[in-house]
Amino acid sequence: TIYFSDIVDFNEIVMNCSPIKIIDILNSLYNLLDTIIDCYDVYKVETIGSVYMVVSGVPVRNGQRHVFEVANMCLDILQKIKELDFERDHVKIKLKIGINTGCSCVAGIVGNKMPRYCLFGDSINTASRMQSTGAGTF
């Protein structure tokens, strides 16, 4: 099961905040998400800008639990994202989330200089499209 999230209107936030504030926002968000995912059988694949990607069921298989792990992780994220407070800067963080399960996926290490664990396949593409076209929530 694949999870993607992105900050709603991130480009607008970037245009209205200082660079150091953007780093503060991303650091606070990623620290929160990193803390949450520690409670679940999931693997953080990567962050790219404001996109956060997590998977369950690979690289370590967990039977059918991957669905449960990601779904409950999402509910936890949606509850705890409300605790991020950037009101002093008039910034409210909302996330667009996409998850998908059941389609094929291939995982592997690519590259030599900076090797990365990458995932490819229908499940990843579908979760990414769901995230990018979804409505934001907080």
Rank of each mutant, 00 (worst) to 15 (best):
T1D: 12
I7H: 01
D9T: 00
F10W: 09
F10E: 05
N11V: 11
I13S: 07
M15E: 00
N16K: 13
N16M: 08
C17A: 13
C17K: 15
S18W: 07
K21P: 04
K21T: 12
I23H: 13
D24S: 01
L33P: 13
L33S: 13
D34E: 02
D38S: 09
Y40C: 01
D41I: 03
V42T: 04
Y43L: 00
K44Y: 13
V45G: 06
V55I: 15
R61E: 08
G63L: 09
G63C: 02
G63Q: 04
E69W: 10
E69F: 05
V70F: 09
N72Y: 09
N72F: 08
N72S: 07
M73P: 08
C74S: 06
D76F: 01
I77E: 04
L78G: 08
I81E: 14
L84P: 14
D85M: 04
E87V: 11
R88I: 02
R88W: 05
D89W: 11
H90S: 15
H90G: 12
K94E: 10
K94Q: 05
K96R: 15
I99V: 13
N100G: 05
T101H: 13
T101S: 13
G102H: 12
C105G: 12
V106Y: 03
A107Q: 11
G108Y: 00
V110D: 01
K113R: 15
M114C: 03
P115M: 03
C118H: 10
C118T: 06
L119C: 12
D122M: 15
S123L: 03
I124K: 14
N125S: 02
N125H: 11
A127V: 11
S128P: 10
M130C: 00
Q131T: 13
S132G: 09
F138A: 14
F138T: 05
